[in-house]
Computed example of a mutant assay.
Amino acid sequence: MTKREQELLSAAALTAFKLNGQFLELAEHLARPAGLTATWWQVLGAVLHQPLSVSAIAREMGITRQAVQRTADVLVDRGLAEYHDNPAHRRAKLVALTPEGRAANSAIGPHHAQHARQLSGVLGEDQLADAVAALTKLSEALDALELSD
């Protein structure tokens, strides 16, 4: 690895860490009026279209299975999600939205649309799409790395 490659890896990581913080702050801002936290919204969003196991949610969101399990339990306790039997695995239940969870998730929509318009206005839609494509490509490249001790 050249010095430049090391600098680029560090710069990419530091920028991603900053972006993560910025997106979490935005997510908290968007979720709060709907009575959610960013974490709750993240898990509800993962099962918006279909029920998933806790492990599948964790893989999709890039967070630990334990963190998803704790969050799913809270969402179930609050009536925003429910557990369903999983035909593929007896012990691994599926997390699914309840009507209350779907309503809470939907309540975020107008605010989300407003912030999407603002961000697109700052960057321009094409540049925002290019940024998303670059971030996706970077994520895929990181997935392809062989991490060894």
Results as ranks from 00 to 15, higher is better:
residue 49 H to L: 15
residue 50 Q to G: 04
residue 50 Q to P: 01
residue 51 P to Y: 04
residue 51 P to A: 06
residue 52 L to K: 11
residue 52 L to G: 08
residue 52 L to M: 12
residue 54 V to Q: 11
residue 55 S to P: 03
residue 58 A to R: 04
residue 59 R to C: 01
residue 60 E to T: 05
residue 61 M to C: 13
residue 62 G to D: 02
residue 63 I to R: 10
residue 64 T to C: 03
residue 68 V to W: 00
residue 68 V to G: 07
residue 68 V to M: 00
residue 69 Q to T: 12
residue 69 Q to M: 09
residue 69 Q to P: 04
residue 71 T to A: 07
residue 71 T to P: 01
residue 72 A to E: 02
residue 77 D to Y: 02
residue 81 A to K: 02
residue 85 D to M: 11
residue 86 N to L: 04
residue 86 N to T: 04
residue 90 R to F: 12
residue 91 R to Q: 11
residue 93 K to W: 02
residue 93 K to S: 08
residue 93 K to R: 15
residue 94 L to P: 08
residue 94 L to H: 09
residue 94 L to F: 03
residue 96 A to C: 06
residue 96 A to W: 07
residue 97 L to Q: 10
residue 100 E to D: 14
residue 100 E to Y: 01
residue 100 E to A: 14
residue 102 R to W: 04
residue 102 R to T: 05
residue 103 A to M: 12
residue 104 A to F: 09
residue 105 N to G: 06
residue 108 I to D: 02
residue 110 P to S: 10
residue 110 P to W: 08
residue 110 P to F: 08
residue 112 H to T: 08
residue 112 H to Q: 11
residue 113 A to C: 03
residue 114 Q to R: 12
residue 114 Q to H: 11
residue 115 H to Y: 15
residue 120 S to F: 09
residue 121 G to D: 09
residue 123 L to H: 07
residue 125 E to A: 12
residue 126 D to F: 08
residue 127 Q to V: 13
residue 127 Q to L: 13
residue 130 D to Q: 14
residue 131 A to W: 13
residue 132 V to L: 15
residue 133 A to P: 02
residue 135 L to Y: 05
residue 136 T to S: 08
residue 136 T to C: 02
